[in-house]
């Protein structure tokens, strides 16, 4: 067996492996629990001791997307054929579907607001970070500190002024308002993170591109951006996760048109019974976009920092 300074030994690899698996178990178990609950029947979901093996059903998902009402006894007696499978499923519990629920609307609100605010936070953050990193900005350090300081208190500390401001500006319960708010909150993070990444890229590359006949913007676009892609991608993930999961402002500022999924999901639990499978189904679907986004950007995250071809 060859010895190498940089290659970890067999034992070290095992140790690292066990750590990673252990951490994965701790973080994945609650997730598995939610996913499993989504496929349980109502009684199974609250059974004690919890059922590990259960008969899977999509009842929770059907409940999530529909509004139902109890069937009258006459209607129950009426024999009906050719019912779609989901109607049959609810009928077994003596209910009938009367319409679609608001979940998909809320979910799309989350998509628009989450991705929209991430987009703006990244575009504006990259522009600001580039300027801070490359131009002589007066009071640069103070400005950067000021931008960071907006993050020093929990955002919810300014909830009441923002609530009043939004009401007066007519931004309450609008998509634009929520995108604006989440962009503002994420901007400090994106400016700081991306500024760090751009600072790492030697200015010589842009100078070379300027000499090679490109304008400053083209140099930025063709030379800086590809090298900052890794950093920008990870920053985008952070921004999206914040905007996606944000609950407090969403509860406070949205109620209808622009309500996102987080404040909506708890309301699924229903008035009569406690429909845990439907809540779990809502949460499961809610997880998917962030997961997909992260997986799509994974290549950039793993690629790490490119070592430059600059002689130090």
């Amino acid at each position: 067996m060859s010895f190498s300074v940089t290659e970890p030994s067999h034992g070290q690899k095992w140790f690292a492996g066990i750590l990673v698996v252990g951490y994965a178990l701790i973080t994945l178990l609650p997730l598995l629990w939610i996913v499993a609950t989504g496929f349980k029947s109502g009684p199974d979901s609250i059974a004690y001791p919890p059922k590990i093996a259960f008969e899977p059903t999509v009842e929770g998902y059907v409940n999530l997307f529909t509004t139902q009402t109890r069937l009258s006894n006459e209607a129950k007696a009426e024999p009906v054929d050719d019912l779609p499978w989901y109607e049959q499923l609810v009928r077994e519990r003596g209910n009938t579907i009367v319409g679609t629920s608001r979940y998909s609307e809320r979910f799309f609100n989350s998509i628009i607001i989450g991705f929209g605010s991430t987009f703006f936070a990244i575009v504006l953050g990259t522009a600001a970070a580039y300027a801070f990193s490359r131009f002589k900005v007066p009071l640069k350090d103070d400005l950067l500190f000021f931008i960071l300081s907006t993050r020093m208190m929990p955002p919810i500390a300014v909830a009441i002024p923002i609530f009043l401001m939004f009401r007066n500006l007519g931004l309450s319960d609008t998509h634009a308002g929520m995108i604006l708010l989440y962009t503002a909150v994420n901007l400090s993070l994106s400016v700081w993170l991306i500024n760090g990444f751009i600072d790492e890229i030697p200015i010589e590359y842009e100078e070379a591109a300027l000499i090679d006949g490109y304008t400053r913007f083209q140099a930025f676009y063709k030379v800086v951006l590809p090298q900052a892609a890794t950093g920008i991608a990870s920053t985008a993930i952070f921004c999206l996760i914040f905007a996606w999961n944000e609950y407090a402002f969403a509860v406070l500022l949205t109620s209808g048109t622009a309500q996102t999924a987080p404040p909506f999901i708890p309301t699924i639990i229903g008035v009569g019974g406690q429909d845990w499978p439907a809540v779990a189904a809502g949460a499961t679907i809610f997880l998917v976009p962030v997961m997909v986004f992260t997986i799509l950007l994974r290549k950039h995250l793993l690629r790490g920092i490119t070592f430059g071809a600059v002689r130090k």
Binding site: E204, I211, Y214, G308, A309, V310
Partner: peptide
């Protein structure tokens, strides 16, 4: 770009 000069940098500066 307007000056139309070519330069070989002391630090190479190849686009990585």
């Amino acid at each position: 770009a307007q000056r139309n000069v070519a330069m070989v940098f002391q630090q190479y500066s190849l686009y990585p």
